[in-house]
């Protein structure tokens, strides 16, 4: 068991092995799983949750949580759709959508730091506010977005790979560099490790938290851009519950829910594992009701394994 013990101290290798094992099992279980068409489908499915998971990883490593990303995504998407409907240039509409997401995240950060409201409560409030605003703006109707730019994002391929995948790669690339190579990331880990110490050592904790939640909001808006492309529409009820999928991806990846520990990239693997469960069970013709049960079990098992890892160290 020496090898197993060693493996438990390698979080990235560990989770990649789990994902690879799943792929292997699924490709034996169904001949359709490893086809190009299905893989393209899978990466498209994973893209939204993966982008949200990147933001969620930052927030969770800082010791917080952001429950509002699904709603903020919807509000950003609706902002884009509404502006295009008003005849505004789609590029400007996109920038406005990104600004809207960032602004909502900024409000989260301000409420948490200035209002001293716990992140869970503050972002739970924002979950309702942003969703409600999306419904108010659209009066409940979905705008069609047939702009070539969004159709391109949603349906085209570059070098044989779907465009949303490039969004995921760029987002994770940038977030990984930020979190592991910059002062910003070091401060996120310090705050997640011990906020009191971070404060004593002169880290501007409140300002940092505002940046973290604004960034999470911005990434929700980036996911909204991909979503608008895929749906060619902006239903205000879009992405309901995706915040929980993003959180689940982060947890399955092995990032500590207490904060301060974990690698950003594992959230991406976590998102892929979740997508593979859904996709694999669909292909095998198993009811989607079971999928929810299984994902629930996987989340709990992931944290249980994480506890084993920490006690091994």
């Amino acid at each position: 068991m020496i090898k197993f013990e060693w493996l438990k101290t390698q979080p990235l290798l560990w989770i990649i092995l789990v994902a690879a094992l799943m792929m292997l099992v699924l490709s034996f279980a169904s001949p359709y799983f490893m086809t190009l068409g299905n893989m393209t489908n899978l990466t498209k499915q994973v893209s939204i949750v993966a982008i949200l998971a990147a933001g969620q990883a930052i927030v969770i490593i800082s010791g917080g949580i952001d429950l509002s990303v699904g709603s903020v995504l919807a509000l950003s998407a609706v902002t884009i759709g509404w502006l295009i409907e008003q005849g505004i240039d789609p590029k400007i509409a996109t920038v406005a959508g990104l600004a809207m997401g960032t602004f909502m995240g900024w409000i989260n950060g301000m409420v948490i730091t200035r209002g001293k409201i716990p992140p869970f409560i503050a972002t739970l409030g924002m979950l309702g506010i942003a969703r409600g605003m999306a419904l108010v703006i659209t009066k409940g109707v979905s705008y069609q977005v047939l702009e070539p730019m969004f159709l391109y994002i949603g349906n085209s391929k570059v070098l044989g790979l779907p465009i949303p995948l490039y969004f995921v790669v760029v987002v994770f690339g940038v977030v990984m560099v930020m979190m592991h190579m910059t002062v910003f990331g070091r401060h996120v880990y310090a705050i997640g490790g011990d906020e009191r110490v971070a404060r004593l050592e002169g880290i501007p904790v409140d300002r940092q938290k505002v940046k973290i939640y604004a960034l999470s909001g911005f990434l929700a808006a980036v996911a909204a851009v991909v979503m608008v492309g895929r749906l060619a529409a902006t239903p205000p009820s879009v992405a309901q519950g995706t915040e929980l999928q993003a959180i689940a991806a982060v947890i399955i990846g092995g990032i500590s829910f207490v904060g301060g520990r974990g690698l950003v990239i594992t959230a991406l693997v976590g998102a892929f594992i979740m997508a593979m469960i859904t996709n694999g069970l669909n292909i095998l013709g198993i009811s989607s009701f079971y999928q929810q049960v299984l994902i629930g079990i996987v989340i709990i098992v992931a944290v249980w394994l994480d506890n084993l890892k920490s006690s091994a160290q």
Partner: peptide, 8 residues
């Protein structure tokens, strides 16, 4: 109280 971050 040892003002260090244990995770770093």
């Amino acid at each position: 109280e040892l003002a260090l971050c244990g995770n770093l």
